[in-house]
Design a protein around this nucleic acid. Structure first.
Length: 504
RNA sequence: GGCCCCUUCGACUAGCGGUAAGGUCACCGCCCUUUCAAGGCGGCGGCACGAGUUCGAAUCUCGUAGGGGUCACCA
């Protein structure tokens, strides 16, 4: 049997991490056995419909490299893949259900339904539609429908007994029919509800495994009943645990950043996000914590899914991102991703090797791609400000800076060892600590006190620039100019740094 | 509230009747060190509770508690 899975998001708002999460597992489940992964757009709610959303969802899947095999943009045998383009299909099937008595028309208006609910609340009775529409005779129902009275089509849930279905991870789940409401199948605007559309589409599209979030368990009996009413074979239901906010409630925009686009903008790399999602509720048999999509496919075993709802932990995501930036992705790869962001920030550089050097030295200190931008101004421009600390360091090391300027200018080979040796020899003969010289130098050539190793910095920046900057800082000190320009850019800088750090 | 699902360190998890309950993040120390990082080493910290079953339970059963989901013409 070919495994066919699908991701079926609604086009509303920002592409959600939950969608990415479920998408990953569906993708992996299908690919594990050489099956197909479909994309279907569940756009049956005209009120919440957002035209831009479809493309954003597709972009998200593309970014994560979870390309569907069929979908609205690429087509496929079972199309169309937008539910809004399949209306007739749903109506026909609803008609069949009506004809066979599995469903009935209900003519209550929105206001009447609210009235019923109020009544139920007042009496302390269970909430929900009470099935009163069942008592309308077939003849009368037809007459009113023909007369143009608005109605919905509801599923006739058996009054007695229970409905059971198999959950691949939990076993048999049984729910008393008395607990299930006569769900609306077709809305009064002629659009299907999720329940009707999902069953028809999954069947017609040959979906074999419905892997979705746990929140759907409660309505699965409705779907099971529909499969039976249609006489169709039921698919395998796999309900994934629900992603949680830090307070353990179901992930929500209010309590957590749930937008994949947001993480992307913050400089999270897709490999890291995907890897992280793959560790939520699942683990590799060999305990490996860093793995890519294909390794996950090769090792995927649905029975290893754990059912406790995992908290979406930003710190952990950040850790994964750091690991990818520092170790898993190649230097060249990272540089390639950083480059466009640097360009967008207005930075230019002479050749690729320079970029590589910069990224190499910044990698251990970067958590996100944005950190490279925030921490690299002095590599790309002489026009950087000095932090208060840096200013103090320069002032305190004035004498050493003057000596360094002179000695460095006489250095023939400006490579790491030469520079490093020079400084070490100098502190030796001066009988002072390394920091006495290193700190002022760092401050002078970067404007900050937290930066990579001084010798590394100097070699990357090059002799000319280093000398120029040392000279400038000394000049600024003596002419007390150092206080003028720094204020503004420095404030901006620390702001940016703080906010980007706070988000992830 | 009814129904359903779930329950190993603060978080993510390994475990599948006999383990000193392992790893990772976070946190805290120490080392390295020119700053900040990175890296190395170490520490803190857990089987929700109660009954069973068993020679033996984190592992099986039942109950309790706690958490979550769901009760829409939203998905």
């Amino acid at each position: 049997m070919t495994v066919v899975t699908r991701i079926a998001p609604s086009p509303t708002g920002d592409p959600h991490v939950g969608t990415a999460y479920i998408g990953l597992f569906n993708y992996v489940l299908a690919k594990q056995s050489g099956g197909r992964f479909l994309f279907r757009l569940e756009d049956t709610d005209r009120n919440r419909y957002d035209a831009a959303s479809e493309q954003r969802l597709l972009d998200m899947l593309g970014w994560l490299d979870l390309q569907p095999d069929e979908g609205p943009d690429i087509g496929g045998e079972a199309g169309p893949y937008r539910q809004s383009e399949r209306l007739e299909l749903y109506q026909q099937h609803a008609q069949n259900l009506l004809a066979q008595g599995h469903a009935y028309r209900a003519f209550e208006t929105q206001a009447e339904l609210e009235q019923i609910q109020l009544e139920q609340k007042r009496l302390g009775r269970p909430l929900g539609y009470d099935g009163r529409g069942r008592s309308v005779s077939a003849a009368e129902s037809d007459r009113r429908a023909v007369a143009g009275e608005p109605f919905v089509v509801r599923l006739r849930i058996p009054e007695q007994g229970t409905t059971t279905f198999e959950d691949a991870l939990r076993g048999t789940i049984e729910i008393a029919n008395s607990e299930i409401r006569d769900a609306v199948l077709l809305k009064s605007d002629g659009f299907p509800t999720y329940h009707l559309a999902v069953v028809i589409d999954d069947h017609l599209m040959g979906v074999t495994h419905i892997l979705r979030a746990e929140e759907w368990i409660a309505s699965t009996p409705i779907h099971a009943l529909l499969y039976r009413a249609f006489g169709w074979q039921e698919p395998n239901f796999v309900h994934m645990p629900l992603l949680r906010n830090p307070d353990e409630s179901k992930v929500s925009k209010r309590k957590l950043d749930t937008s994949v686009e947001s993480y992307r903008q913050q400089g999270i790399v897709p490999e890291a996000l995907l890897n992280y999602l793959g560790t939520l509720g699942w683990s590799m048999p060999n305990g490996k914590e860093f793995f890519d999509r294909d390794e996950m496919i090769a090792n995927f075993d649905p029975t290893r899914i754990s059912l406790g709802g995992p908290v979406f932990d930003l710190k952990r995501l950040r850790h994964y991102n750091e690991k990818y930036l520092r170790e898993i992705l190649s230097l060249k790869d990272v540089a390639g991703r950083v480059a466009p962001l640097l360009e967008a920030a207005g930075y230019r550089w002479a050749d690729d090797d320079y970029l590589l050097d910069v990224v190499d030295v910044l990698r251990p200190r970067a958590s996100t791609l944005l950190d490279f931008i925030d921490q690299s101004a002095y590599f790309f421009s002489d026009d950087f400000g000095y932090s208060d600390d840096a200013r103090k360091r320069v002032a305190a090391g004035q004498k050493y800076l003057e000596d360094m300027e002179r000695e460095l200018s006489m250095l023939e080979f400006f490579d790491y060892d030469s520079v490093d040796d020079l400084i070490r020899d100098y502190v030796q003969e001066q009988s002072i600590g390394l920091g006495k010289v290193m700190m002022p130098l760092r401050a002078a050539i970067t404007g900050v006190t937290n930066a990579p190793g001084v010798a590394d910095l100097m070699v990357i920046l090059g002799k000319q620039r280093v000398l120029r900057r040392i000279g400038r800082s000394l000049g600024d000190i003596t002419s007390a100019l150092l206080d003028d320009k720094p204020q503004k850019p420095e404030a901006d800088k620390s702001d940016k740094g703080a906010s980007s750090k706070a988000v992830v």
